[in-house]
Each structure stands twice: as C-alpha cells, then as structure tokens.
Amino acid sequence: MTDYLLSVAILLALYVTLSVSLNLLAGYSGLISLAQATLFGIGAYASAILAVRFGVDLTLAFLVAVGATIVFALAVALLSVRVRDDYFVVATFGFQAVVVSVFTNSVRLTGGPMGIKGIPKPTLLGWDASSNWALLLLACILAVASIAVEWRMGRSAFGRAMRACRDDEVFAQSLGKNVGRTRVVAFVIAACMAAMAGSLYAYYVTFIDPASFTLTEAILILAMVIIGGAGSIWGPVLGAGLLVALPEALRAFGLPTLAAGNLRQIVYGVLLVLFVAFRPEGILGAEAGLKKGDR
C-alpha cells in the first residue's frame, strides 16, 4: 500500500513540475506548446543513456539532461519567434513528432521502440539516492522549487512583460520589450524544469520507452494547465493534482487497468472540451490566461 501511495506521490510531484513548466509558456506567455512532453522525454533519455552506459552521479545526469533539453528548447523557442501565432501549435506538434520519431527509430542510441531498461539507481554526490523515498524527496524539492520560481517570475516585471507579449506583441515592442528574448528565457527555464523532471522519472521507473513521451502525454500536461487555470500560480498545481488523482480513483473503483487507461482519455478529453468551451480560464484562473486581450 505504501509503495502504491509513494508511486502516486512521485508521479504527482513530477507532473506538478511539468505543468508548472508548461504554464510559463502556455499560461503566462500565451505559447501553447505541444512539445513539453518531448522535452521531458529528452531529459529522461539523456539521463538514462548516461546512467546505463557510464553510471554517473545524479548531479552530472541533471546537468547533461538540462543541457541537452535546452538545446532543443531553443529550437522550439526559435519556432515561436519565426512562425506565425496560429501556426505555432502546429509547429510544436511537428517538432514533437520528429523527436518521437527519433526516439523510436534510433535503435543504437535510444533502444528504439524497446526503450532503455535497467537504469541503475542514482547517487547524489556520494549519498545513495536509490530508495524510492529519496527519489520522492528529490521530486518534491523539484516541484517546490519550480513553484517558487514560477511565483517569483509571475509576480515580477518579467512576468508582466511575458503577459504583455502574450496580449499584444506589437504594443510590448513599442514599450521596449524584446519579445524574442522574453520568450527564449521562458522556454529555457521551462526546459530546465522539464529536463530535471525527466531525469528523475527515468531513475524512478528504471525503464523508459518512446510511448511515455508522445502527444497523449503532451495533451495531458496541457489539460492540467488549462483545467487548473492557465496563467495563475496554483492553477497548474491543482490541475496536476486533479488529473493524477483521477485515474487512481478510477482504479480504486475496480475498473481493469487497460479500460481505465482508455476511460481516462475519454474523461480528459471531455473535461478539456468543456473547460475550453465554458471556462477557458480554468478553475483558478482569475484572468483568462489563454485568450489574447480584446482590442
């Protein structure tokens, strides 16, 4: 029983981090990105490859994961600057499809569709972090740190600049805001969060394959942000809590796992549609985080 609760807790902490990271993009910056799950995946694969081949310390795994993910995040950031607003989502969709394709087909690097298994447990600067409790602790620290960063950023002048770029890019530029740079910064920070979450995820589940980082995952994270309240500080946290707790509740009602998985998708889909139609600001959002300001 404790193991089960522990696993739910770790997943919750990781998803909180992920949805907070996406909130920086989709909520504050108005950049709906379907690539966040892929960045999560790049972090996971980077750490997994390093751990399996070289057995490195967690700090190094984090650094490499973050480094690799930032490179790709910069590519997506570049897309956000060069691609027209309406098409940005499509571009991120294309991006994630290309990366998943690489995950699935580069057998020598990523193990292809079989993935990477037998990821050894990590050590953190000598301290043995192999127990699930240790990983839970790290995941919670990551989640709290992400919320703290989001809090500091969101309430500052930088957060104001992000929201202005979302509402009216031209206006923001006329006030001296470098829209491209603001977006790149948001992307890099979101990438760091996703990368570290990916790293921890790989160590926790000890087996990763491309299926965990597909579009379905990306939409799940987006749903957490939208339902919880995009552009608010606690919205993504609430969204993660709801959408992680839901499948567990379904499981508690005795539905067979596979069906619960599909039922889950139906429930998420319906929720997402309902919220976007009737309450786009989510449960918590005081401001309509995703709508551009009326002009």
Partner: peptide
C-alpha cells in the same frame, strides 16, 4: 488602433511602460 496589454490592469500597463 488601440494597443494595450488587455488582461493587465491600468497600473500594470503603466508599470510596463
């Protein structure tokens, strides 16, 4: 054509400036 940061308050718009 009126350009402002629509979801921000008046004060926030000015602070932005």
């Amino acid at each position: 054509d009126m350009r402002l940061a629509g979801t921000l308050t008046i004060l926030e718009n000015l602070l932005l400036a």
